[in-house]
Simulated assay, not measured.
Amino acid sequence: MEPITEPSRVNYFYGRLLTAEDFEQEQQAIRERHWLHNRLLHGFGVVTGLDVTVDGDRVEVSAGVAIDALGREVLLLEPRCLRADSEVLGNDGAAVDVVVAWGEQPDGEVPGPDGPVPARFVERPVVALASDAAAGVPEHALPLARLVRRGDEVVADRSPRQPFVPVLAYS
Results as ranks from 00 to 15, higher is better:
residue 154 V to M: 08
residue 117 V to M: 09
residue 101 A to Y: 04
residue 34 H to E: 13
residue 31 R to F: 12
residue 14 Y to A: 14
residue 48 T to F: 09
residue 131 S to A: 15
residue 53 T to K: 03
residue 67 I to E: 03
residue 133 A to C: 01
residue 16 R to Y: 02
residue 164 F to N: 08
residue 50 L to S: 08
residue 47 V to D: 10
residue 127 V to K: 00
residue 163 P to Q: 08
residue 19 T to R: 11
residue 49 G to C: 12
residue 73 E to S: 10
residue 35 W to L: 02
residue 51 D to M: 01
residue 51 D to V: 06
residue 37 H to M: 11
residue 157 D to C: 07
residue 111 P to S: 10
residue 133 A to S: 06
residue 169 A to E: 14
residue 117 V to E: 09
residue 85 D to K: 11
residue 64 G to R: 05
residue 163 P to L: 13
residue 170 Y to G: 14
residue 100 V to K: 02
residue 44 F to S: 13
residue 114 D to H: 10
residue 14 Y to M: 11
residue 150 R to S: 13
residue 28 Q to W: 06
residue 114 D to K: 05
residue 116 P to R: 00
residue 131 S to N: 11
residue 61 V to C: 12
residue 137 V to Q: 10
residue 128 A to F: 05
residue 40 L to T: 14
residue 24 E to V: 04
residue 49 G to K: 07
residue 29 A to Y: 02
residue 54 V to I: 11
residue 98 V to H: 03
residue 125 P to R: 05
residue 148 V to N: 02
residue 40 L to P: 00
residue 17 L to W: 01
residue 95 A to T: 15
residue 111 P to G: 07
residue 87 E to F: 09
residue 126 V to R: 03
residue 101 A to K: 07
residue 63 A to V: 04
residue 149 R to V: 09
residue 29 A to S: 12
residue 75 L to Y: 04
residue 168 L to P: 08
residue 12 Y to M: 11
residue 162 Q to Y: 14
residue 38 N to F: 03
residue 22 D to A: 04
residue 154 V to A: 11
